[in-house]
Design a protein around this nucleic acid. Structure first.
Length: 307
DNA sequence: AAGGGTGCCAACCGCGTTTAG
DNA sequence: GCTAAACGCGGTTGGCACCCT
């Protein structure tokens, strides 16, 4: 070591600056034909005078077919604010909660709009985060307040596994929404999803009225302990979301059937006294979230009826 | 109309992490 | 297990567009 990091490409031989339509077309065409298994060699193979990193960035941020363009909705902005409070400047993580939005785009929106809205006197260069708490003299009180909130959230996430029901995430008037049967099937698939715990935990911490965290933790624990046998007997691998067959509903393994109904949800919430309260907005939010995370395009369609 | 200031965003840079040999 | 290459991420910046004086 000690010789420093080798440059990713010969900067004298690559084009820099804005991409031309022709370059975009070349990149799109190449990726559609050959994919992007190796960004470093891609520009050479595609005939582009660009650095591989530049190609990757261009593709991810602008040329991907699933990139959503246009202004951010109020809901998206609120989500960014929520997730930023929980995750800090983890733009890619936040982006994973907002399908079609890129980390770069979210970062820009945060730095140009949302940060100003929340911290009106913060300077341009200091990206506000849960780690760094700039103390601008003129807004010290605001900063202290917001830093406290941010750090408290961050800490609670760090200590998530030790969290008790008395954690700040739980409030006396929480309302729980019971999903429909089809949604329980989806939940079961989520439980088999590698990232489920992380993404759900993050969501839970920012939507305090939706779920009781402790019951979900219990669920996950139970899931781990019992293995949740598939009714078909076969061990279910992590399911490819798109391949899920919605047409054959069967008892989602791990969910109890009571009086012909899957009643896990009531089992989940019964230790938490507040009466479950129907709330279609929350249900929609939850379904949308789950759908986004699992890329089940039609997830919300299965949850149109919400108690 | 011109010049300076500000906002915005696409793109770059460099570091940490992951992967392959 | 080690090393270098490649990838991915977050911070930063260049430059254009718009606004204000």
């Amino acid at each position: 070591m000690g010789k420093g990091r080798a440059p990713c490409c010969d900067k004298s031989k690559v084009k820099r600056g804005p991409w031309s339509p022709k370059e975009d077309l070349t990149l799109i065409t190449f990726i559609q034909k050959h994919g992007h298994h190796n960004w470093r060699s891609l520009p050479k193979l595609a005939g582009l005078m660009r650095c591989g990193k530049s190609c990757r960035l261009r593709w991810i941020n602008y040329l991907r077919p699933d990139v959503k363009r246009g202004n951010f909705s109020k809901e998206e902005e609120d989500a960014i604010i929520h997730f930023h409070q929980t995750l800090g400047n983890k733009w890619s993580k936040i982006a994973s909660f907002l399908p079609g939005r890129t980390d770069n785009e979210i970062k820009n929106v945060w730095n140009t709009h949302l940060k100003k809205r929340l911290f009106p006197n913060s300077s341009r260069s200091s990206s506000y985060s849960s780690i760094s708490c700039p103390h601008d003299r003129t807004t010290e009180a605001d900063h202290n307040k917001n830093c406290a909130i941010v750090q408290e959230k961050g800490n609670s996430r760090d200590n998530e596994s030790q969290d008790s029901p008395s954690s700040s995430r739980l409030h006396g008037n929480d309302m729980y929404t019971k999903p429909e049967v089809n949604e329980l099937h989806e939940i079961q698939l989520l439980l088999d999803h590698d990232d489920f715990y992380d993404i759900t935990s993050a969501f839970l911490q920012t939507t305090e009225t939706l779920f009781p965290v402790q019951p979900l933790d219990s669920l996950l624990q139970t899931h781990t302990l019992t293995g949740f046998h598939n009714t078909g007997g076969a061990t279910q691998e992590a399911t490819e979301p798109q391949s899920f067959d919605h047409s054959q509903p069967e008892i989602p393994y791990g969910f109890e059937e009571t009086n012909g109904e899957f009643d896990l949800w009531s089992q989940l919430v019964k230790s938490n006294s507040p009466t479950p309260s129907p709330n279609s907005e929350e249900c929609d939010e939850w379904l949308s979230f789950m759908g986004n995370q699992t890329y089940f395009d039609d997830f919300t369609l299965f949850g149109e009826v919400c108690l």
